[in-house]
Design a protein around this nucleic acid. Sequence first.
DNA 1: ACGAACGGTAAGTCTAGGCTTACGTTATGC
DNA 2: GCATAACGTAAGCCTAGACTTACCGTTCGT
Lengths: 117, 117
Amino acid sequence: METYGSDVWEAIGDPTRRAIMACLAGKELAVGELADELPVSRPAVSQHLKVLKNADLVAERTAGTRRIYRLNPAGVAALRDQLETFWSRALTGYQDIAAGRGGHATAGAENQFEEEE
Amino acid sequence: METYGSDVWEAIGDPTRRAIMACLAGKELAVGELADELPVSRPAVSQHLKVLKNADLVAERTAGTRRIYRLNPAGVAALRDQLETFWSRALTGYQDIAAGRGGHATAGAENQFEEEE
DNA sequence: ACGAACGGTAAGTCTAGGCTTACGTTATGC
DNA sequence: GCATAACGTAAGCCTAGACTTACCGTTCGT
């Protein structure tokens, strides 16, 4: 649904962003709290959260002057499905499938992989 | 099994490497053939294949002076499982689980995410 | 045995992007 | 209303790493 998968690869490609997602797994956290648990400054966390939000991987909730961030289950699930589709194709060697349909095999997988630039 | 998950994140983080994996999905290819299908030079492909091989995502087969590369199903499956474990944790919000056991919740997820540097 | 093809490696360049400091903005508490 | 706290944003720096050209080793064909 929606435009998921826009730049999810870039989003989860950075170690700090993965650490942020790990911190948010199961509990909500404000920006400052995240920065306390990570070896980077608060503005750095803020910038990473911006990327994660653009990728629909986190959601925002305002509480007074604080911004509480939380994982977005829908976005995470979408990313999971996207990866799952690829793995299954790669593992089964879907060339066999394409052979039965007479199509060029690589098209689907390429779409799975390079949706950037 | 083995030392999977060493630097898989770095491996799949690059668009060109994902394109290489897409090309190898279902068919074997030599280095030069891969370079023909990609917008980068042959040495670049060679360097990417080195990274992918270190991550156990591809396997090598020598045929004369040519090196035929192929996806490594075991490595791909290992990466898939690693990701799957994380997604499920993130989605279920395993804080509930940790609450029942009295432990600090984030430890498991952090291990899932930052195994580098 | 020699030449050509194939591919890995070295050295160097250049850009993307992650991090920091500094600043502006907004909302709360007194 | 003012001071403060929490955040986002701008500007700038700096390193990782992706790419290229040049070179060398290896293997096959004739």
